[in-house]
Amino acid sequence: MLDSFTIRRIQSVMNGYIHEKVPAPLRTMVKLTYEMNDNELILTEERPAEQPYQWDKMHIARFYWEENRWKVYAKDEHSSWNVVDVIEPCPDFEDLLEQVERDDAGLFWR
């Protein structure tokens, strides 16, 4: 399980990333959110739903802390999480977030 210092650091990284990724004028049309639970962080894109004041969610990536390193997962066509083989597990969360952002394999940002 992640310690409280690491959790706060990752929350700070994610809050900064989200703030930079989605320009203010677009935040009524798209937003990025994340959810942290134990050793997991799920990055989600949200867009307005048909019902007023509701948002549709699409999971982008899953980061999982295991054996002292982060692993990255992506959803497949059946909505199951699968480890991303082209991104090596790494203890540096920010390095993996950067690789997800670049998305060289076209797995995350469709």
Rank of each mutant, 00 (worst) to 15 (best):
Q51Y: 05
Q51V: 06
P52N: 00
P52F: 08
P52K: 06
P52S: 04
P52C: 06
P52W: 01
P52I: 08
Y53F: 12
Y53T: 08
Y53E: 13
Q54S: 02
Q54R: 09
Q54H: 02
Q54C: 02
W55A: 02
W55K: 03
W55T: 02
W55E: 00
W55N: 00
D56I: 03
D56E: 09
D56V: 00
K57N: 09
K57R: 13
K57L: 09
K57G: 10
K57C: 13
K57E: 15
M58K: 04
M58Y: 05
M58V: 07
H59Y: 04
H59C: 07
H59N: 13
I60V: 15
I60S: 06
I60Y: 04
I60A: 04
A61L: 05
A61C: 07
R62A: 05
F63H: 09
F63P: 01
F63C: 05
Y64K: 15
Y64N: 08
Y64E: 06
Y64C: 01
Y64F: 05
Y64T: 03
W65H: 07
W65G: 01
E66D: 13
E66F: 14
E66H: 15
E66A: 13
E66M: 12
E66V: 08
E67R: 15
E67L: 13
N68L: 13
N68P: 07
N68T: 11
R69H: 15
R69F: 07
R69D: 06
R69K: 15
W70Q: 00
W70M: 04
W70T: 02
W70N: 00
K71G: 09
K71E: 12
K71V: 04
K71C: 12
K71D: 06
V72Q: 03
V72I: 03
V72Y: 00
V72M: 01
V72L: 01
Y73Q: 11
Y73E: 10
Y73D: 10
A74I: 06
A74P: 02
K75L: 15
K75D: 07
K75Q: 15
K75N: 11
E77P: 01
E77F: 09
E77R: 06
E77Q: 11
H78D: 12
H78L: 05
H78Y: 02
H78K: 03
S80Y: 10
S80E: 11
S80F: 11
W81S: 09
W81P: 12
W81L: 05
W81D: 07
W81M: 05
W81V: 09
N82I: 13
N82Y: 12
N82G: 08
N82T: 11
V83A: 12
V83W: 04
V83M: 12
